[in-house]
Amino acid sequence: MKYSINTIVSEIRRKEDKLSLETEHLLEEAYQMIQYLKDLLHSNRELVINEGFANSMDEIDFFRNIKPYILGKLIYYNKVFRIETICPVRRGKMYHKFFLGQLQDLKQEFKEHICGSYFYRYYRSGRSDRDEEYFIRGKINYRDGLNSYVFEIDDQFSTYYDSKAARIVANELLYTYLVSKISPDDTPASLFHDADSIKDIFWTDSKNALIELIYALHAAGVISHGKIGIRKITLVFQILFRVQLGDIHHAFHRMKERSGAKTSFLDSLKFSLEQYMEKGV
């Protein structure tokens, strides 16, 4: 059977988008995504065991790209669920300090267990010369001095290194999540190539107006061909305008309960543009 990373990514993102609209809190969304991804991982395991692969290239693609994406997302949502269940009350110094600590822990884990490894450099550089060693089942080289959990892996559905790739995926997702929880004033400027050039740009309308705009752009799929999630788009706007939007899903649900026009800001943009065009500017 031929597996497609694009199909898997699209399927997961559709589920994320659906849940982001249906659930009011990230905690509930994370829980439901955990259940969904567990089932998806299990169904893929059944397919791999029962149908196998047409050739080694398909096997490499699955264990280098597809399984790490699913497992990485599962690790990410499980961590988010754990964090959200213990985080302090919204906002305030305690809240801020908590997420700074979580971010510091993530950076330390990355430094100790990921970035210094040969595999990380191999994987991130896009090399493929050792793919048959890393992403074909049954080719584990114990002379490399592997971690002890290698003896616990499912050799029918693991290559040892696919789990390492999943950790890289999860780490990057968690970094984005934690940064979005911290005040934009403390967001690393490195997320923009030239932070000084945007320091005089700020949002002057209400936060709800910006959230309305973000959801409209996401729904229209006009940013990165619709291939990135609502949280990443939100993070970019928070950094660009140095504004903390808080729980955007809850705000969006409140918008849906508005009486009268539910897209008041977008309606005002349309009116403003029409007026601008009539002036012939």
Rank of each mutant, 00 (worst) to 15 (best):
K79N: 14
L26C: 15
V48Y: 05
K67M: 02
F63S: 05
S10H: 10
D17G: 13
S56H: 10
K79A: 14
I34K: 09
K38L: 01
L19W: 11
E46C: 10
N78M: 06
R13L: 02
H42R: 15
L71T: 08
N44M: 01
L19G: 06
S20V: 02
Y31R: 13
I49K: 12
I75V: 09
R13I: 01
E11S: 06
I49L: 05
I60F: 10
Y76E: 05
K38Y: 06
R64W: 05
M33W: 06
A30G: 03
Q35T: 08
R13H: 11
M33F: 08
K15M: 08
P68Y: 01
L37K: 12
I66S: 00
I66L: 00
Q35R: 08
I75L: 10
R45P: 09
E16C: 04
S56R: 11
Y76I: 02
L19H: 08
M33P: 13
S10Y: 10
F62S: 00
I49D: 00
I70C: 07
H42P: 08
N50G: 12
L21H: 15
Q35C: 07
E51P: 07
L47I: 15
F53C: 04
N50S: 12
S43H: 11
S10N: 14
Y36R: 05
L19S: 08
I66Y: 00
P68R: 02
M57C: 15
V9G: 00
Y36E: 08
P68H: 03
R45H: 12
N65K: 01
I70R: 04
L21V: 15
E22D: 07
R14F: 06
I8K: 00
Y31P: 07
I60E: 01
Q32R: 11
V48P: 10
E59A: 13
I34C: 14
L26W: 15
A30R: 00
L26F: 14
L41Y: 12
I34D: 11
L74G: 00
I8P: 05
D58C: 03
E51S: 09
M33N: 05
L40T: 01
I8F: 06
E28L: 14
S20L: 07
K38D: 07
R64D: 00
K38A: 03
K38Q: 05
L21F: 15
F53N: 02
N55L: 11
E59F: 11
A54I: 05
S56T: 12
D58K: 04
H25T: 09
G52L: 01
Y76G: 03
N65A: 02
E11I: 03
T7Y: 03
E46A: 09
S20C: 09
K15R: 13
K67S: 02
N55M: 11
G72T: 07
D17N: 14
I66V: 02
L37W: 14
I75C: 08
G52A: 03
L71K: 07
F62K: 01
F62W: 05
